[in-house]
Amino acid sequence: MVPAEIIEFLSVLIYPGFIFIFTLAFFYEWVDRKFVARLQNRYGPLYAGPGGILQPFADFIKLLAKEDITPRAADKTTFRVTPILMLALALSTLFFIPTAYTTAVSWFEGDLIFVTFLVSILVLITLIAAWSSTSTFSTVGGIRVVLQMLGFEIPMTIVMVGPAIVSKTLSITNIALWQYTTGHYFAIYQPIGLIVLIICLLAEIKKAPFDIPEAESELAAGWITEFSGRKLALIRLTTDVELILAGALVTALFLGGPTGPFGIPSVIFFLIKTTGVILVISNLRALFARFRIDQMLGGFWKYLVPLALLQIILVTLGVG
């Protein structure tokens, strides 16, 4: 008889914890890269493993082995700690969203608010990381990260409230379950909310057309410019985990989470639904040119905030 504590510990460590999430992170990076490449008439990753599926993992290992340079002017401690902190935060956010099972690893009434809080903290950590590396490119990139947050955070939070109002719970797990038990999927009943959330998440995970903080042709690598070696590996892993985060959040709030009929394991439904969301995100990434920061902010405040409010008004009027 294995004690319950050990099972819980293993679930955090292996499934659906770290190992599962990391594998998924590499897999989704591959899906994203491969899909964008095919849209652009390229192969994308090709030689590492079947169809290049191991390429993201190979990149990660390569970066781990690379020289790790800390700029002389950098704030050493902060510079060292921030990549770890970012990864930890992204992972702990994922623990509150149902992935492999219909319930999240950890959940409580009100974790929806906690998740939005963690997402904002993640952005602030990015700013601190950029600031501590003291290079011009990083600093400008960091400022742009925060400016971008001012744009996407309000509409994102507003539309996330939509499902909560209808299902009368503030827990992501319960929102997902509620959709399954009532058959009332929010993707159908709150389409505006879904669109706004996906656009905001694009900005959150800093993918084109909102890769303004990393704008290659303007700022080299933006806020990550000074990071190298292991730190860069962690940051890239964080980016991938954030990609799952985006997929899982949309899945849980609007597509009913990892639930489905026929007694098929819930993780299969989770994979299908998030892959769908990630393909949409990849497609949007290939479709647009990068916006300028002022255009992005203006667009978010002029169009997305009113749309998000409209969605909430519709919900409270009983349409959702």
Binding site: L39, Q40, P209, D211, E216, R290
Partner: peptide
Amino acid sequence: IGFDTLFMY
């Protein structure tokens, strides 16, 4: 201007 798809095409 960050439009890599057009660049590739």
